[in-house]
Design a protein around this nucleic acid. Structure first.
Length: 606
RNA sequence: CGGGGCAUGGCGCAGUCUGGUAGCGCAUCUGCUUUGGGAGCAGAGGGUCGCAGGUUCAAAUCCUGCUGCCCCGACCA
């Protein structure tokens, strides 16, 4: 109906020109595979919108897949939505195959549930809180552990009903500090979240493994190059956890992979192997030198003419019971906050000490801090503890100590793993060296254990009739993010190159000069119908546009297969085929074209 | 949240320093020509210059406040 109205207002001319387009504009619901471009109002642009930083975002805007409504909030236009639905379908198929049950939970959730789990206080400003007209508190769900656990404790009563895995595809809202990169890090986004419930750990392990398999299958079907990496479980909590990372330069996560085996871990978690070589012998005696204005390791290294590896970095962070804790690193290493905040006595989440706290603890200022003479707890990274004859701050403004040695000049502090691994470090797996790659997190699987089930008293009766707290797993996928991740991995200078399983259409049919040539129009119309009848999703570019425009837009949009019909080929009874990544055409007999495309699509993994 | 930047037709930008007629490219509409790689010519429509105050004879331009957006650092699917 709406389509008719639009045509009457804006599309009258086109509708008169192509009577069949009126039908195409409102294809019956059982023919969602076809589309005439003349009936489709979305624009593509040559120019890149200024707001887009990363390639996937630029291409999504240029191709008309999405439009921004507010920071981190996007509308999905028809082409984008078609791909989004492909992603959702693959996810549903694999979740169903793994035995999970689809449900749909509310986006708006009462505050009471969040108070019960303790996250009303814990979650912070990322949680969007709203009030209804009665001034009652609600949240717009950023995740659904509370709701699903509430369902489980009401519905699940017997061990006989376990294990069970509930999943949903649903809109989430997280008021991200910094939304960016389009739908890659939106505030509103679609997530597939699944939650499994188990009687015991063995069953949880099985359920977790089943999700691992399902995730691997879906990302493979989506044509994504991904790695499964060990991960920190973060704010959601729990024990074992792995991330599915799509490898891409623009990824926000750093991943440590071994070149010797299949070890892969998020850099937050990747263990730094302590050095095996013994510490060098102490050399010259400890002395203090004036280092006016040298506040950074780089400046100090320059000034002292010592390599940064010889300079000790001292960071003061807040302690869990007040006070501060000193963390020592080799000058060229970076502090790993996730590791540090797990140390006994260190506040979690990690906070750097304030200027006042630094002054109180050391009598000095950042830039001149060192471990000698400190009375607060001190942790030293393994690599820092392996240093000899090093320099460090003197806890006196504009002064540093040089030729410092552990044991000789000050007691060796507690050893800990505090740093990010760097390229070239030995792999924690014992084989090979670490390489750092970047990834986009598209999936994350956790073993939650009893974190929520015990907080919310979700129990079932076991064989002996005794109430047992269920164990839970939870499994997320960033559905909208996948679309961006796929583009990050599959594009060229002309536009998107969709993996076939995600493409909004399989084939784009481009007739040339169909306004002039009755023969072209007739053959193109016929081929359009045949392709559709064969179950192939085809986009028919029946617009009165110049060939260059049609080619450029088809390539921007990333349709995998292209068929061009022109007078030239029709003389010889052929049409032209081109695979999106290819650079030249292939003539195929018009009569074989449907079979030709079908043969190519048959290669799709299912 | 801290730091930086931007805000001018649908999009991309100039004009702001030095106050005085709002301009360019793309897109859109009409006509003609063109039709194998984002056409050419001619014409047309469309902007209270983010909002609110202030200074001034006069503000896109100067001042103040606010809002929105983008980028850089601590969070996550």
């Amino acid at each position: 109906m709406l389509v008719h109205e639009r045509r009457m207002i804006g599309g009258a001319r086109r509708a008169v020109q192509h009577p069949s387009a009126r039908i195409a504009g409102c294809l019956p619901p059982d023919s969602p595979k076809l589309m005439r471009l003349s009936a489709y109002p979305v624009n593509s642009t040559k120019e890149t919108p200024a707001e887009a930083e990363v390639l996937s975002h630029q291409l999504m805007l240029r191709a008309g897949l999405i439009r921004r409504l507010a920071a981190g909030i996007y509308s999905w236009l028809p082409f984008g939505l078609r791909t989004l639905k492909k992603v959702e379908t693959i996810i549903r198929e694999e979740m169903d195959r793994a035995g999970a049950l689809e449900i749909l939970m509310p986006a708006i959730q009462p505050a009471e549930l969040w108070q019960e789990s303790g996250r009303w206080e814990q979650y912070g400003p990322e949680l969007l809180r709203v009030k209804d007209r009665q001034k009652r508190d609600y949240v717009f769900g950023p995740t659904h552990e509370e709701v699903v656990t509430d369902i489980a404790r009401r519905e699940l009563r017997s061990y006989r009903q376990l294990p069970v895995n509930f999943y949903q595809l649903q809109t989430k809202f997280r008021d991200e500090v910094r939304p960016r990169f389009g739908v890659m890090r939106g505030r509103e986004f679609i997530m597939k979240d699944a939650y499994s419930f188990h009687l015991d750990q063995a069953s949880l392990n099985e359920g977790y493994a089943a999700m691992y398999t399902a995730y691997s299958r879906m990302f493979t079907r989506m044509g994504l190059d991904f790695r499964v990496v060990m991960a920190d479980s973060g704010a959601i909590g729990g024990n074992r956890s792995q991330e599915f990372q799509v490898l891409a330069e623009s990824g926000e996560d750093a991943i440590a992979v071994s070149d010797g085996d299949d070890f892969a871990a998020n850099i937050e978690l990747a263990a730094a192997v302590p050095p095996t070589e013994p510490r060098a012998a102490p050399g010259g005696a400890l002395r203090q030198v004036a280092t006016p204005g040298m506040k950074t390791i780089a400046a100090l290294s320059d000034f002292l003419k010592m390599p940064v590896q010889q300079c000790l970095k001292t960071l003061l962070v807040e302690g869990s019971e007040g006070g501060v804790v000193a963390l020592l690193l080799r000058g060229d290493h970076e502090l790993n906050a996730v590791k540090a905040q797990k140390l006994a006595g260190v506040a979690s989440p990690l906070r750097m000490a304030s200027a006042e706290q630094v002054k109180a603890a050391t009598g000095s200022e950042p830039g001149s801090l060192g471990p000698k003479g400190l009375s607060c707890p001190i942790y030293a990274d393994h690599a820092a503890l392996a240093m000899a004859n090093f320099s460090c701050g003197a806890n006196v403004v504009d002064a540093h100590l040089v030729d410092v040695n552990w044991e000789r000049d000050l007691p060796a502090p507690t050893a800990a793993d505090l740093r990010n691994v760097v390229a070239g470090d030995p792999s924690p797996s014992g084989k090979g060296k670490i390489r750092i790659v970047r990834g986009i997190e598209v999936g994350h699987i956790f073993q939650l254990g009893s974190k929520y089930s015990s907080a919310m008293n979700a129990t079932v009766l076991d064989e002996a009739g005794k109430a047992v707290t269920m164990l839970m797993g939870c499994y997320g996928i960033g559905v909208t993010r996948i679309v961006a991740a796929a583009i990050e991995q599959h594009h060229d200078e002309r536009g998107i190159i969709w993996p076939e399983s995600l493409a909004p259409f399989h084939v784009v049919l481009i007739p040339l000069n169909l306004q002039k040539s009755a023969r072209v129009r007739e053959r193109a119309d016929a081929l359009y119908a045949q392709l559709g009848a064969a179950g192939i999703e085809v986009l028919y570019d029946d617009r009165d546009a110049r060939p260059g425009v049609k080619f450029a837009e088809a390539e921007l949009l990333g349709i995998p297969h292209r068929i061009v019909l022109g007078e030239r080929g029709l003389e010889a009874g052929t049409c032209e085929y081109r695979h999106r990544p290819a650079t030249d055409n292939q003539d195929i007999p018009l009569a074989d074209s449907v079979g030709f495309i079908q043969a190519r699509l048959a290669l799709l993994p299912r």
